[in-house]
Design a binder for these strands. Structure first.
Length: 281
DNA sequence: AAAGTAACCTGCCCGC
DNA sequence: TGCGGGCAGGTTACTT
């Protein structure tokens, strides 16, 4: 499910809502999702502590506490958070899937946050002060950071033997782009996903670079992409509206919105890849 | 070393 | 109406 725009939308909402709340306790229904530390310690440490902020790295959400511990969450394919204030009932959308509620956070003001995940591909770690997680240390550029400038992007392309879609989706190179946005970035750039990165001209690279930034920003502004199954919704159960602006992703049996040519589906690293072979060279 | 495949899960859609 | 196969916003581990 969630790629950078969806994760960032959730992060921003979480930051607004839970920062400065006191976490009274957590309840774990599905211990397998907790990767670190052992479950007893996990529950023991997440008691009576203050939330000081919520950040993001790639597709990971990081909740910070006054103890200097931090909770890292990867939503996998279907992880979602549901927030309810003290007197609210769960919203309709979450009610349908209550059996997939796995983790409950109870706050001092009687509000609560639930981690829900149909497929259970999500993963959660609680790190103590100074501890780090290799998979986060190994992430590549944060694509919306200023530090990720065109020269650095172009150098990535020159140095790689991958095709451009593989590169865009490689979290160790650029963090946060998944299958939806890789498809959209390449269609909007009119570049075929199988092009070897070293074969791209500076002009072509520039188009891709600008589309990475533009499409991710646009998608955040529209609060992400919700597909029909609603495995991505925000904390209140609301859908994102970037889906309405998708050009190719998920458009099976559809035609190119630019030239009318039927879209083709190819598989790259076993992921469906939608391409207009007339427009994308 | 790169590239392919299976594994982790549940649900939905399609064709027979 | 039911059953089996394939597919889904992700990532890792294990093969070739």
């Amino acid at each position: 499910m969630p790629e950078l725009p969806e994760v960032e939308t959730i992060r921003r909402d979480l930051e607004k809502i839970i920062t400065k709340k006191i976490l009274i306790k957590v309840q774990v229904k599905t211990p397998i999702l907790i990767k670190k530390p052992k479950i007893d310690e996990f529950i023991y440490k997440l008691k009576n502590i203050l939330i000081t902020g919520v950040t993001r790295r790639g597709k990971y959400i990081i909740i910070h506490f006054d103890t200097m511990d931090s909770l890292i969450i990867h939503l996998g394919m279907s992880g979602r958070f549901e927030y309810t204030s003290s007197n609210e009932l769960p919203s309709k959308i979450f009610k349908k899937q209550q059996k997939h509620n796995h983790l409950f956070f109870f706050f001092k003001d009687r509000s609560r946050l639930i981690y829900n995940d149909v497929r259970k591909f999500g993963k959660i770690w609680l790190l103590e002060k100074g501890e780090n997680l290799p998979r986060i240390e190994n992430l590549g550029f944060e694509p919306l950071d200023e530090e990720f400038n065109f020269d650095k992007f172009y150098k990535l392309l020159v140095d790689s033997t991958k095709n451009i879609k593989q590169l865009l989706m490689d979290q160790k190179i650029i963090a946060g782009i998944g299958n939806i946005y890789a498809n959209e970035i390449l269609f909007n750039s009119r570049i075929h996903p199988l092009r070897k990165t070293y074969s791209l001209s500076e002009d072509e690279a520039k188009k891709i670079y600008l589309n990475i930034k533009r499409i991710l920003v646009d998608a955040i502004n529209l609060r992400g992409t919700t597909m029909v199954d609603e495995s991505y919704v925000d904390l209140q159960g609301n859908t994102g509206s970037y889906g309405g602006t998708l050009n190719v992703y998920g458009k099976k049996n559809d035609t190119c919105p630019v030239c009318g040519n039927p879209l083709k589906i190819i598989r790259i690293e076993n992921r469906s890849t939608f391409v207009c072979s007339k427009c994308q060279k």
